[in-house]
Structure formats: structure tokens, C-alpha cells
């Protein structure tokens, strides 16, 4: 499948995991990588260009750090402008149907923070529900998100594992080696789950 990565991070000087993940994705052949904050530093998104990109790919990957339980501002702007009526939704807006959407996110909070008993009182998938429903309304299949928790506290081994897993995940999607049926059974997945989900 043709894979498009839309990366949104406003403070890349402070990021290690996301920027490292991004550089892996950037170097991957056959995958289109877009740094939204670099292309649109003034938030003036080229809607036609973004829509053309969507049409030219089958899997849309949203890569971002979770900010206040949501996407960074520019990615929200991207949704507001690019997912137009008549293009992405509405009676004639069928352009995105049959495509896949997947969120690859990092959170500051730990896995236990994102549980019914934790500080955030919900699992992470619940917080991404707006994105899930957006994809649904556009006729896309929303795949379970690829999540790295405690991104601020993780040790170097865990970080490197995640950083290496990310391009593997993208390559598997690209080469149709991803076991989507198995993936659909899970609410979310992480780098440890990847070996079960990718065929060689």
C-alpha cells in the first residue's frame, strides 16, 4: 500500500523520540513523509496539495505527540481545512473511502495514568475518539493507534526499541505484511506487539 506520514510537532528542538522516529520514517523508501510544521510554519495550508497527497496514498499515518489529549494545533488546522465537504465527506465526498487511517502517538502520561483507575480515568483510545470518528465519517478504516507512553521518562532502551519499531511498522504497511485482522482485535499496540502483527 502507498503510505503517507503526516508528522506534526511544533517544538522539535525539545523532542527526542518523535524526531528520531521521524528521521527513520523520512529515510524509508516508498513512504511519503511530510513535516507539516516545516511546510506550513504560518499555518497557511495548501489545501489542494494536501488533498492530492491524500488521493495518491492508501494509508494515512498521523504522527504526533499528544497535547492536551488532542493533536497539535496545526494538525487540527489540517483536518479543518483539508477534509472538505464534497471531498472527504458528504454525498459526493467519497475520495477517502476504503483508505486506512492510523495514529502514531507519544504521551507524557504512563500507561497506568491512561486507565479507568488512573489520573486520566480513560484509556488512551478514548481520547483519540474524535480522530477515530473523523476517519469513520470520511469512510476510512481507523486502525488501532501505535502508542508510546511515558515518553518523558522512558529509558534509552525503551526509546530505541520504539524508534526502531516505527519504520518497521511503516514498511510492513507499505509491503502488505501487516496482519490487519490481528491488529483489529486490539485497542492499541506498541513496539512489543509488533512481532506478533508483522509477517516476514
Amino acid at each position: 500500500m502507498r503510505v503517507l506520514v503526516l508528522f506534526a510537532h511544533p517544538a522539535q528542538r525539545k523532542s527526542s523520540v518523535n524526531v528520531a522516529m521521524a528521521s527513520g520514517a523520512r529515510q524509508l523508501g516508498g513512504v511519503t513523509f511530510v513535516d507539516l510544521y516545516a511546510e506550513y510554519p504560518r499555518f497557511s495550508i495548501d489545501v489542494d496539495r494536501e488533498q492530492r497527497r491524500l488521493m495518491q496514498h492508501d494509508v494515512i499515518v498521523f504522527q504526533f505527540p499528544l497535547f492536551w489529549y488532542s493533536t497539535p494545533a496545526l494538525l487540527k488546522q489540517w483536518q479543518d481545512l483539508v477534509l472538505e465537504y464534497g471531498f472527504a465527506y458528504g454525498p459526493k465526498g467519497k475520495t477517502l473511502s476504503e483508505k486506512y487511517a492510523i495514529a502514531c502517538i507519544t504521551t507524557g502520561g504512563s500507561k497506568s495514568d491512561y486507565s479507568e483507575e488512573g489520573g486520566n480515568r480513560r484509556e488512551i483510545r478514548n481520547f483519540l475518539y474524535p480522530l477515530e470518528q473523523t476517519a469513520g465519517l470520511c469512510g476510512m478504516e481507523y486502525l488501532p493507534p501505535f502508542v508510546l507512553h511515558s515518553a518523558n521518562h522512558i529509558d534509552d532502551t525503551g526509546a530505541q526499541l520504539h524508534i526502531r519499531a516505527y519504520p518497521q511498522l511503516l514498511a510492513a504497511l507499505r509491503d502488505d505484511r501487516f496482519d490487519l485482522a490481528a491488529l483489529r482485535q486490539r485497542p492499541t499496540f506498541d513496539s512489543f506487539d509488533l512481532t506478533d502483527l508483522v509477517r516476514n
Binding site: 499528544l66 502520561g109 518523558n152 522512558i154 534509552d156 524508534i163
Partner: peptide, 14 residues
């Protein structure tokens, strides 16, 4: 913010 050698990402998501 955690220890220095740890790659950081994300912000005040809670």
C-alpha cells in the same frame, strides 16, 4: 521533565 539522557517528547498532555 525526566532525566537528561532520556529522549523526550510530548508536552503537558495532562
Amino acid at each position: 521533565v525526566g532525566s537528561i539522557h532520556v529522549p523526550r517528547s510530548g508536552g503537558p498532555d495532562r
